[in-house]
Amino acid sequence: MIGFERVSKWYGSYPALVEIDETIARGEVVVICGPSGSGKSTLLRTVNRLESIQAGRIRIEGRDIHAPGTDVNALRARIGFVFQQFNLFPHLTALQNCTLAPVQLGRLSRSQALEQARALLARVGLAHKADAYPAELSGGQQQRVAIARALAQQPPLMLFDEPTSALDPEMVGEVLAVIRGLAKDGMTLICVTHEMGFAREVADRVLFMDAGRVLERASPAEFFQRPQHPRAQQFLADIRLPFDAR
């Protein structure tokens, strides 16, 4: 469904992405992990063109999405994106956050959008908070509303950019549960995350990135038990037992 063909990106002379070459099938759940600055978020953001690319091609369902003349808005309406910082619209209620795009883009009538929004909020466990403003919600609740908002576009593909990194630990679980549910329902997901337990449980494939390159790609079982690349081994060792006194 998604194909990266020798994708490269530079910030001036700094290489952010180097010759990325990957394919992601429909219905696959892919987790991208790696140290800070490895380019994982950048790679994710090139898929819905929040970032541009300087070389290579990215194809979604066969179409080159960075080609000039592509309808960016139509592309983005078919991709759900969940931000690390939630970025809910603070002047709108949870319900209104979810109805804004479908109504504005003319996909649904107001009543259809409301009905769908209520269903989505119920799905993420927040039916009772439909009329609450983001300021009245906890971080975990806000992120769940953000997921519902992205789902309101009925996208075939969902992108998650470190969805739990900005949350207090006790709220991480509720958000991961929602994402797990989406994976079970067969949604195509690409998730940048540090949550290794989640990756192990839900991912079909893990991509390990460092310094703009994909250094290892494997199933979760192989990656976590038998990492091949030395950087990957170092990374897993660091996050597993950083203060081990052994």
Partner: peptide, 23 residues
Amino acid sequence: GQMEAARALGLSHLQALRSVILP
């Protein structure tokens, strides 16, 4: 973040200004 979130939903620059940024 607000503009990015609005654009990520597929809203155009003008729609994002009108519904999200300016209010």
